[in-house]
């Protein structure tokens, strides 16, 4: 009992040292805020880029060979090349390197580290989202496309009202995976001096010489966020599934 009591006292002491003393919990709060800000903006940007790129890519794959020669065909060819280049470069280089390049070369005069990180992670995520959605678009029955066109919808409207909603539903689990990966990937933001959740835990570790509690706390917060997000996606999936097959 004596030893047990001592252990509890010790835990309480380290806890106070890590999180209460000097208001160190504020590091975690700031870090969590930055992590969420970066993730949410990157997510929105990633989906926007991903949808755009995937539409160009799948349009090229499905229609280029049968298209009439002309300006549209040339433009589609060029856009497809650009999209392929983008996906290749982004997926072929580590996100940390992309972040360092963005922070120290491209946006060297921009003061907002969080802004640069959100942009970088968004551009990074867009490449992965593009490939995921492209797979979803290609998996929609071509008859759906013909039905849309035969009613008189043009290509873009058919995509918007008929193909993308179905593709989105198919790829939702893969997208959720990508977003979970994105949330955790933002933990490298500390490389360019941003106080994200991971960096916050690391700062506390440096200040208190206590490694265990701050790092386990950081891990636990990530875990809770991922579990919450997974639950949310599961709920959304079930709601969407009520209408399907």
């Amino acid at each position: 009992m004596e030893r047990g009591g001592f252990a509890v006292d010790e835990i309480v002491r380290v806890f106070r040292q890590c999180f209460i003393a000097d208001n160190r919990w504020r590091y975690l709060l700031t870090g969590l805020g930055n992590t969420l800000t970066i993730t949410v903006f990157a997510l929105l940007l990633g989906v926007a880029i991903g949808v755009l790129v995937s539409v160009f890519r799948s349009t090229y794959d499905m229609t280029y060979d049968t298209m009439r020669p002309g300006f549209g065909k040339v433009m589609l060819g060029i856009m497809n090349r650009i999209c392929v280049l983008y996906v290749t470069v982004i997926r072929g280089t580590p996100v940390v390197v992309q972040l360092l390049i963005a922070y120290f070369i491209v946006f060297v005069s921009v003061r907002s580290g969080v802004g640069v990180a959100a942009l970088t992670f968004g551009i990074n995520s867009g490449a992965y989202v593009a490939e995921i959605i492209r797979g979803g678009i290609m998996s929609v029955d071509p008859g759906q496309f013909e039905a849309g066109r035969s009613l008189g919808f043009n290509y873009v409207a058919t995509m918007r009202y008929i193909i993308i909603p179905q593709a989105f539903k198919t790829v939702l689990p893969s997208l959720a995976n990508e977003f979970i990966a994105l949330l955790k990937e933002t933990s490298v933001a500390g490389y360019v001096g941003i106080v994200d959740l991971t960096k916050a835990g690391d700062i506390i570790r440096g200040n208190t010489f206590q490694a265990f509690m701050p790092l386990i706390a950081v891990a636990a917060i990530y875990l809770v966020m991922v579990i919450f997000f997974t639950w949310l996606v599961g709920k959304l999936e079930r709601r969407l599934r009520t209408s399907e097959h």
Binding site: Q144, E146, G152, S243
Partner: peptide, 18 residues
Amino acid sequence: RRKMGMVFQHFNLFPHMT
């Protein structure tokens, strides 16, 4: 095409709509 209705062998109804 808006003036030409088409019916397909495999129906091609939009599964995500009522």
